[in-house]
Design a protein around this nucleic acid. Sequence first.
DNA 1: GTCTATAAGATGATAGAC
DNA 2: GTCTATCATCTTATAGAC
Lengths: 189, 189
Amino acid sequence: MPSCRLAAWRAGADVNQALIFYHFGTVADLIDAACREAVDSSIDGYRQQFAAVGSFVELLRLGRELHDRERATGNVAIMAQLMAGAQSNERLAATARYCLARWNAELETVVARLVDGSAFDGLLDPAGLARAISSGFLGLELYEGVDSAGAHDALEALERLGVLVEVVDELPPIAQRALRVKLRRRTRT
Amino acid sequence: MPSCRLAAWRAGADVNQALIFYHFGTVADLIDAACREAVDSSIDGYRQQFAAVGSFVELLRLGRELHDRERATGNVAIMAQLMAGAQSNERLAATARYCLARWNAELETVVARLVDGSAFDGLLDPAGLARAISSGFLGLELYEGVDSAGAHDALEALERLGVLVEVVDELPPIAQRALRVKLRRRTRT
DNA sequence: GTCTATAAGATGATAGAC
DNA sequence: GTCTATCATCTTATAGAC
């Protein structure tokens, strides 16, 4: 695939309209190529930073950085269009599925590492949590475009919640045992 | 505003196309009217159920019910289009802002009631949390359209997290005091 | 208020010269 | 491979008869 052309097009280069169809066939194919390239390169650029994440609060901080960057590059607007279109177009849904799966895989690795050996080991599901995080991120991206002050408040609230989670993780063993006992009683019901 | 017409149009009634412009002026005005009417009636129908929510897990359950209903009525698809369009169109952004503000107000009331007097009183910000919840809900709506199994996993993970929060809330006073001390030390840093 | 007809503009794509 | 020209179709209206 001529992704050099794609890069030029995304940069706003003044390319002949007919050439787009010559290279990509249909718009759906173009969008697919653009999104896959965008997510692949984005993830590639963040691999080391994901690997360096050592806590939920750090993960959230990385998320905020990513959020700012993706918005500045225009990827958020593209992703918003993609997700909206995907609701009623299976071709776009397949593209979106690829992008989400890539982010999910990255997130799941991090979440599994954080949960493993912590007080939450066995209590939380890394795969499900990764999906919850990526969909939450997605929602915040869209929310930000409409009410950026509100999005900021939401992120601050989540950060406080993250600190809370970490503090629970550092609770003395007696308290943690009490927590586990209560949890077991709850989930059995 | 002739919302009777709107209802007919939304029901898929075979209305003359020119009439839409006669009644609403522009498409943006039509979308605005449709969305406001949809969110107003939706919230109206859920007021009692919101009032009955007594815990975060119950709030999540109500969210799942709402999620299913909104998807079935097609409101999710409309909201997705609205949010995507709002990213680059201020007129649509204003409409979206209204819808989000209405849900936020409802959520904030519930969250404030849940936090008030609990172990999290003063530790969590109801307004920010309400916005985090509504944007998370929004993200899940979109995610569901692309990967419904993944959305289900995400909701299950969130429910487990909710149970965890409630269990922390029921921790013995000694453990809760330890938690608060640690938290204060953390947030000062 | 409601209908038919029509038009301006954008979008997605193809044909064919170079 | 790249360009110009042209297309069918859809969207967003407006005009004017009834």
